[in-house]
């Protein structure tokens, strides 16, 4: 049995949009990269997402947002993570997010990385692996 620490990721769809094709593609890619991916399904509140992230003890929380509500949802999720003493969970996301909003979200620390349509899934895998490595080596 390998004692290699498995990376756990929660892929969540907060808010009202009902399109989870992208979320599923990403979930599948992460699975194929050897990660354990918890998928929550559609229409989650930020409270539900954060509670699930805590119970599942994930390393990474990925939000998929296509509704345009990213400037509300990312800050709210981040805030709830901090409130619940879970600010160490890496918060990333994807969806339809304009350039300037991406800058702002990253600058203010509401998202550590954002992946918009067209980005190869390998890049997401790479990013998570690198982030996990620097996290564990600094810990």
């Amino acid at each position: 049995m390998s004692k290699e620490r498995k990376i756990r990721v929660l892929v969540a769809k907060p808010g009202l949009d009902g399109h989870d094709r992208g979320a599923k593609v990403v979930a599948r890619a992460l699975r194929d990269a050897g990660m354990e991916v918890v998928y929550t399904g559609l229409h989650q509140t930020p409270e539900q997402v954060v509670e699930a992230a805590i119970q599942e003890d994930v390393d990474v929380l990925g939000l998929s947002i296509l509704s345009g509500a990213h400037m509300t949802l990312f800050p709210r999720v981040k805030e709830l993570l901090e409130e619940n003493n879970a600010g160490d969970i890496l918060l990333i996301g994807g969806g339809i997010i304009p350039e300037e909003d991406m800058e702002e979200l990253k600058e203010k620390g509401y998202a550590q990385a954002l992946f918009t349509p067209g980005i190869p899934t390998d890049e997401i895998v790479e990013w998570i692996r690198n982030a996990m490595e620097s996290k564990t080596s600094s810990a």
Partner: peptide, 16 residues
């Protein structure tokens, strides 16, 4: 690959 999709939560929304 050692990976997994854990999807049981999808059906357990009422209690999250």
């Amino acid at each position: 690959t050692g990976g997994a999709i854990l999807g049981d939560r999808i059906r357990m929304q009422e209690h999250t």
